[in-house]
Design a protein around this nucleic acid. Structure first.
Length: 569
DNA sequence: GTAGGGTTAG
């Protein structure tokens, strides 16, 4: 009965049942502990374990210890794990496979990889199994050692779906998306059938590639295999659609799982809405989440605060920050601090943002100073920007963003000499500037455009298209924002440089190569400049198309001369 | 009757 409740995810019911029992045998204790462990309630598993040791004469058996070791592994409690290990040796329970595997996992996960390896080597060759090796493989991946992990994977004879997934996830977590993709392909060809874990991981690959086509393919295969009903796959789908620029797709999935939403589902949808500039909707959804009695976690609050940032709701942001710390008792992290700095700074309350940084109970990090710096850039506050940049460079001397932001700000204010000075010192220190580029995917092929690099095969046609658009939008009232040009050159040259910004080239290319009325989805690695933002609004009206641009921080939906961000970004 | 390796959010 206890395990039945646990399997339904009703830990409370299981506990009530357990408390009712007059006589508790080892199986009832084990069921409760294992249930907690399987539902991620590892702290509860450990407390139950110590109750068992105190309240009863029962001795833990191999089932108890396997679960407890797993809890230690998840909580990375190496010391406690070692004590359990000692007990296992004394009680001579170390011969059971499940216990051995749990032991190796515990060491691999909680920072004792060398011990894990040693135990594995001591096992006779006969009973080495895929579970222990997968745990070891995962241990290497956690340390970022991909090579030994891959070696283990290659040497495994009976690779099952978990081993394949562990290796794929390992690539994803270490930013090796292409390797993940490649391995997934060969899994399809010759490996076991992917399950919900595999598909969720591959959806996160599609998210970081921001490839809607690819994500849709994974969605289709999840539908075919029935894994689409898993909450984790649904949650990963929400993020994938959002990051690929389709807020509608994200909404559809979220609505579809009405009866099956967890904290991650709500959080993913809130973040999706925030990223797409639907700040009010994000907040409304958050309130709905609270009224449904779903507990927000620290990431939910990152989403809520960034929703407030994107629409400039300063007061509301402040009150949510207080709600988080005072009511939900969530300790703010660096991300929350960065959100608050952004919230205040974006709204022009630069001094207040600066004071906020000064009042932090921890050393401010690169992100904190970087947020303040970019806000100073938006509001053209040179003095504070200089201060922020200097402090940032103390922590990270090679931060190209800090140099660029400061140099650009000087340029924008016409202080060419100081701008040149910053660029010189950047050059002297060997710091390389991050180049801006944009890309667009058309029929499974990604086309990348740098600033005016002119390498594309359709260069002539693209430039010609841009020339035509430029003339027409100027007739519509578009005024080029030559302040966005960060070089001291004549007005005419400035205009030419603006015309060839990477996002504009990507749009011109998209217009040439897609049928009329198709939505264009452009991605950019840096934040969109003022001139491009203004130009794209006109272009969307001129060509009667929706243009979706994802820049470094958010999405802009341009339609009929307007942008979803309402020009606040 | 109970157990062991792998997800998803900024």
């Amino acid at each position: 009965m206890i395990s039945l409740h646990m399997q339904c995810g009703c830990a409370d019911l299981a506990l009530a049942q357990f408390k009712q029992m007059k006589e508790r045998d080892i199986v009832s204790w084990n069921s409760l502990i294992a249930g907690y462990n399987q539902h991620g309630l590892d702290m509860e598993a450990l407390t139950t374990f110590s109750c068992m040791l105190q309240d009863s004469v029962l001795q833990p058996d191999k089932f108890t210890l396997a679960s407890i070791l797993s809890a230690c592994a998840n909580l990375e409690k190496l010391e406690l794990g070692k004590q359990i290990h000692a007990h296992i040796v004394r009680a001579e329970l170390g011969t059971y496979d499940a216990v051995k595997n749990a032991l190796i996992t515990m060491y691999a996960k909680s920072g004792g990889l060398a011990i894990a390896q040693k135990i594995l080597e001591q096992c006779a060759t006969s009973d080495l199994n895929v579970i222990a090796f997968t745990a070891l493989l995962h241990g290497y991946i956690k340390l970022g050692d991909i090579m030994p992990a891959r070696q283990i994977f290659d040497s495994l004879r009976d690779r099952d779906v978990v081993a394949w997934t562990a290796m794929i996830v390992g690539y994803v977590q270490n930013g090796l998306n292409n390797d993940a993709l490649e391995l997934f392909m060969s899994m399809i060809k010759q490996g076991p059938k992917p399950n919900s874990y595999t598909l969720a991981a591959m959806l996160s690959v599609s998210s970081s590639l921001a490839s809607l086509d690819y994500g849709k393919q994974i969605h289709a295969s999840a539908m075919r295999s029935g894994e689409v009903h898993s909450v984790s796959v649904s949650n990963a789908l929400i993020s994938m659609y959002s990051k690929a620029g389709s807020i509608g797709g994200a909404r559809k999935v979220f609505n579809l799982i009405y009866f099956n939403r967890d904290t991650v589902s709500w959080t993913s949808m809130i973040i999706a809405l925030a990223q797409h500039g639907h700040g009010e909707d994000a907040i409304e959804l958050f309130e709905k989440m609270l009224s449904h009695g779903i507990k927000p976690d620290h990431i939910t609050y990152v989403g809520v605060l960034s929703a407030c940032i994107h629409v400039g709701l300063v007061e509301q942001g402040r009150s949510y920050y207080n709600l988080m710390t005072n009511v939900h008792k969530i300790e703010p992290t660096h991300s929350h601090y960065a959100c608050m700095i952004d919230l205040l700074g974006r709204a022009g309350l630069l001094q207040e943002a600066f004071n906020f940084i000064q009042s932090l109970p921890v050393e401010p990090d690169v992100i904190a100073w970087g947020s303040l710096l970019s806000c100073c850039k938006v509001h053209k506050n040179v003095d504070l920007a200089k201060d922020a940049a200097e402090r940032l460079l103390l922590i990270d001397p090679d931060n190209s963003g800090a140099y660029s932001a400061l140099a650009n700000l000087y340029s924008a204010c016409g202080r060419w000499e100081e701008a040149a000075q910053v660029r010189r010192s950047m050059k002297n220190k060997g710091v390389k500037k991050e180049q801006g580029f944009s890309w667009i995917q058309i029929q499974n092929k990604v086309h990348v455009f740098g600033v005016d690099d002119g390498v594309h095969t359709q260069k002539e046609a693209i430039y010609k298209m841009m020339e035509k658009i430029w003339k027409e939008i100027k007739n519509m009232g578009f005024v080029p924002d030559t302040d966005s040009v960060l070089h001291d050159v004549g007005e005419e040259v400035k205009e030419k440089m603006l015309k060839h910004h990477s996002e504009k080239l990507a749009i011109a290319f998209g217009l040439i190569n897609t049928p009329e009325n198709t939505t264009l989805r452009i991605m950019k690695n840096l934040r969109v400049c003022n001139d491009c933002h203004s130009a794209i609004k006109f272009i969307s009206k001129l060509v009667g198309r929706e243009i979706i641009l994802r820049d470094a921080t958010r999405f802009h939906h341009f339609k009929n001369g307007k942008c979803s961000c309402r020009d606040y970004w």
